[in-house]
């Protein structure tokens, strides 16, 4: 696939902390990590999704001014950023492993709408829904 969405970014409060979270606790891989002065372009990738990168950016100058950065940091910390969805094969198994690694779950796995879902947040406050992929009959 050569066309499509390549990168979608999240705001995080600390890129090092976010890197550890997404790599060590969620099993993502680092795709790009480039520094230029205070600016750091950091993206991670789900091992099963090589065409997509998740950017982990800290709001701040020069991209946005200090006041805007403060506002963005508040919005992230209040959990007001748009929802994110992680699709997994087995929600309960994933929950067990991630919980053991210290992921902050806001909702335990629940059976509903013909699937299983749970919720967790990254250290910054970004909220993820973790949904079990519906089994497609082969």
């Amino acid at each position: 696939m050569s066309q499509g969405v390549g990168v979608v970014g999240l705001y995080v409060r600390d890129q090092e902390e976010a890197l550890q979270f997404y790599v060590e606790k969620l099993g993502f891989r680092v795709h790009t990590d480039v520094k230029n002065g205070d600016y750091r372009w950091l993206t991670v990738q789900h091992p099963g999704q090589p065409s997509f990168q998740l950017g982990l950016y800290k709001p701040g100058p020069p991209t946005v001014d200090a006041k805007t950065a403060q506002t963005l940091s508040e919005i992230v910390a209040k959990g007001a950023m748009p929802p994110l969805v992680l699709v997994v094969d087995d929600c309960r198994e994933a929950y067990k492993g991630m919980r053991a690694r210290g992921v902050e779950f806001t909702q335990e796995p629940v059976d509903r709408y013909g699937s299983v879902d749970a919720s967790f947040r990254d250290p910054s406050g970004n909220g993820w829904k973790m949904i079990e992929a519906r089994k497609v009959p082969s």
């Binding site: 409060r13 506002t71 910390a77 209040k78 959990g79 947040r121 250290p123």
Partner: peptide
């Protein structure tokens, strides 16, 4: 640093809301 609520405090308050 512009005055405003500490994002770390907000993050902890979010935990109570969750």
């Amino acid at each position: 640093v512009p005055p405003g609520p500490d994002p770390n405090l907000l993050r902890r308050l979010l935990r109570a809301k969750d």
